[in-house]
Simulated assay, not measured.
Amino acid sequence: MPITRRRLLGFLTGAFAAVGVPTVWISRMKTYDGPISDHFDGERFFDADGMPPKSLAEVLRWQFGERKRAAWPEWVTNAHADTPPPRVEGSKVRLSYVGHASWLIQTAGLNILVDPVWSMRASPLSFAGPKRRCDPGIAFDALPKIDVVLVSHGHYDHLDIATLSRLSAKFSPRVITPLGNDITMRDADDAIKAEAFDWQDRVALGDGVAVTLVATRHWSARGLFDRNKALWASFVLETPAGKLYIVCDSGYGDGTHFRRVAEAHGPLRLAILPIGAYEPRWFMLDQHMNPEDAVQAFADCGAAQALGHHYGTFQLTDEAIDAPVIALGEALDQAKVPRERFTALKPGQVFEV
């Protein structure tokens, strides 16, 4: 089949969205300007225990030289659809899986969204890039009043300006995000009430609930020339039922990041860990865990329970749509961990602590 300009654009957008590089070749966005630290050199953020992102040459090698992409269904009809209550009071935590890395967490009278993406594509373009393969587990109009939004980093499958603008127009929530991503949000829509924080910053959310931003093995970008000019993070959410460790995107490495969270923030009641977007391993190893990695991360962080996410909604990488869930079960069996301790919900399913 000949490579037309439109087909090339679609290929590149799909490939680059998985690693944070869209077809906006020159980023004109404003970027973070702040003091030098142990993870910011005055121009870019870095992780002394991480790995730099793959080069453009490696992206092209994967996309055009070695890609073996499994076929996904064009659309999957959800078996579940959640209609959340207006609030959840007391010590209970109610977690509703929206899809990909998006969650609604309700506790202590607060409604918190994590990495909300209701758009049809994880892309800056409406006609190219990874396309949603199932409805969100909660219809946007069924959302209760949202008080707080947590956005982990700037990749398009996590920081979705269109969704943040809709949330801001309807609910005007606080948006908590790592340094630099607030600039991206406000540059697109100054109505987004973005607040930016560094690793280890603890932010009170109200009613005894707080969130701490912690280092994670990943990186960030919105264009070719703004790589790591905004920070990325995972979250430790303090709730009346215990601490929730929310990892939206991460490689495993040697497990340092997970063990540090256990040491600094344990005991953890629940870990939300990514299990998808991991093939081919030579390309994705440093930035996305596979299910075997996620089971080891579960052991390292010491959480009592785990939930898997970051799979089955957008085809970012090469594995089949059901491969992460199958491989998770096999990895749990191999590690002799009961499958009920680490489950992967479907969009619209609910888990309560």
Results as ranks from 00 to 15, higher is better:
Lys131Arg: 14
Arg132Gln: 13
Arg133Ala: 15
Arg133Thr: 12
Asp135Phe: 05
Gly137Thr: 09
Asp141Pro: 02
Ala142Asn: 15
Ala142Glu: 11
Ile146Leu: 04
Val149Thr: 10
His155Thr: 01
Tyr156Gly: 07
Tyr156Arg: 01
Asp157Tyr: 14
His158Trp: 07
His158Asn: 14
Asp160Pro: 06
Leu164Glu: 09
Ser165Ile: 06
Arg166Lys: 14
Arg166Asn: 06
Arg166Cys: 03
Arg174Asn: 09
Val175Phe: 13
Thr177Ser: 01
Leu179Val: 06
Gly180Tyr: 01
Gly180Thr: 08
Asn181Thr: 15
Asn181Glu: 05
Ile183Leu: 12
Thr184Glu: 04
Met185Thr: 02
Asp187Pro: 04
Ala188Arg: 04
Ile192Ser: 07
Ala194Leu: 01
Ala196Asp: 12
Phe197Val: 14
Asp198Lys: 01
Arg202Ile: 04
Val203His: 06
Val203Ser: 07
Ala204Val: 06
Ala204Leu: 09
Leu205Asp: 07
Val209Ser: 06
Ala210Trp: 03
Thr212Met: 13
Thr212Gln: 13
His218Ser: 15
Ser220Asn: 05
Ala221Pro: 00
Ala221Cys: 10
Ala221Lys: 10
Arg222Lys: 12
Gly223Ala: 12
Leu224Lys: 05
Leu224Ile: 05
Ala230Val: 11
Ala230Pro: 00
Leu231Gln: 15
Ala233Ile: 09
Val236Ala: 10
Glu238Ala: 11
Glu238Lys: 09
Lys243Asp: 10
Val247Asn: 09
Cys248Leu: 00
Asp249Val: 08
Ser250Val: 02
Gly253His: 09
Asp254Met: 00
Arg259His: 07
